[in-house]
Write a protein that binds this DNA or RNA. Structure first.
Lengths: 190, 190
DNA sequence: TAAATAATCTAGCAGTGCTAATTTGTCAAT
DNA sequence: ATTGACAAATTAGCACTGCTAGATTATTTA
């Protein structure tokens, strides 16, 4: 009975092709260019097929975003070097976070700006959505009483820096100084 | 020759009606419901008339956003009480900023998320876009070496808090604690 | 009063997300 | 092998979007 398994496999491969196509087009031409028609053309199926994989366009963005959360979490974890001091670790994670945001603006937009249908802080929340937070919590913990609240605040600062710079509201040339400031703030030596 | 003046006046009144309509619809039904057709219907003119006032839809959003920047600046300035300590002023401005963001989510979205065609940090940048930053700089100055960079970072932290909470990424119940954390960070007593 | 200019509208283009109705393909039962 | 049932995929189209060319109406100038 390998036939039905093959069908399931082919189906999930097609789903992957949709997600890859969405990501590719978004990174090249922006999310406005990611239309159902274009995706259908890319995977060489008619448009309604996409709706047998995803409820609507937002969920396709959500699927790409989910990948992004997994990748960001891995990047942040990788930025935590055992040989570093607690302070250095905060700085490294902050730098890695912003590097990610600026290197993959379309992905970052999917993760944090666009409607995705992703649900946070629920019982069925995928692990990718928690892991990035966990990595940040790891480096914040040594400096915080309430780790969760401190991590939320740290995260918010990084997100704000990413968004304001992405929109041309703050000076790109001073990115390093701002990170230094946040690091000093977290470590309590201002 | 008051006729041409009346015409100019009527024209700018019509422009105001467009902006007011856009704002009203956005605050009630979201920006996706602000369409050229709906605005045209609202002001009782045909659609092309809107394009004699604004180049495109983004510029209408931008006009609303510009009002928002003026209002935010006024709110932040008003939050700075002469009788307060430097620390309290930081907290009051932070609280006022977030109150604004959560009380007027559509307006905040126009100001910081949607494409608006507004140009920051230019010679022709409208004063509204600078005044809010100025208000924040005022309360940050007593604690900072480099006021501009510190204000950018402070602003980013607030923006991040607003956005992450608006998207359900961080816990609304802990908003006050996060503000306290930021305030302590700025004032250097962690 | 006639011509020129300005203001406005009608009509329509090319595109969007999404879906009902139809066709095509695949399988099990006769 | 043929038929009927089910699944998979397609065609065609709806209601909407931002935007604009061309026609029409109103106003001003000569």
């Amino acid at each position: 009975m390998g036939i039905s398994e093959r069908k399931i496999r082919e189906r999930s491969e097609r789903e992957r092709r949709i997600i890859v196509a969405a990501r590719t087009i978004a990174e090249r031409d922006g999310w406005a260019s990611v239309t159902i028609r274009r995706l259908a053309e890319e995977i060489e199926y008619s448009q309604p097929v996409l709706y047998s994989h995803f409820e609507n366009r937002d969920q396709i963005v959500g699927a790409v975003a989910l990948e992004g959360f997994g990748e960001l979490a891995a990047i942040l974890r990788a930025a935590i070097r055992p040989s570093s001091t607690s302070k250095e670790r905060v700085e490294d994670v902050a730098t890695a976070y912003l590097d990610f945001a600026f290197a993959r603006p379309a992905m970052y937009e999917a993760m944090f700006v666009l409607p995705t249908g992703l649900r946070f802080a629920r019982s069925d929340t995928p692990p990718q959505l928690r892991e990035g937070f966990g990595a940040m919590a790891t480096v914040i913990a040594p400096f915080a009483q309430d780790v969760d609240t401190a991590t939320e605040t740290f995260w918010a600062a990084l997100h704000g820096l990413a968004e304001l710079e992405r929109h041309g509201r703050i000076r790109p040339a001073f990115r390093a100084q701002r990170i230094t400031l946040i690091m000093r703030m977290v470590s309590g030596e201002l």
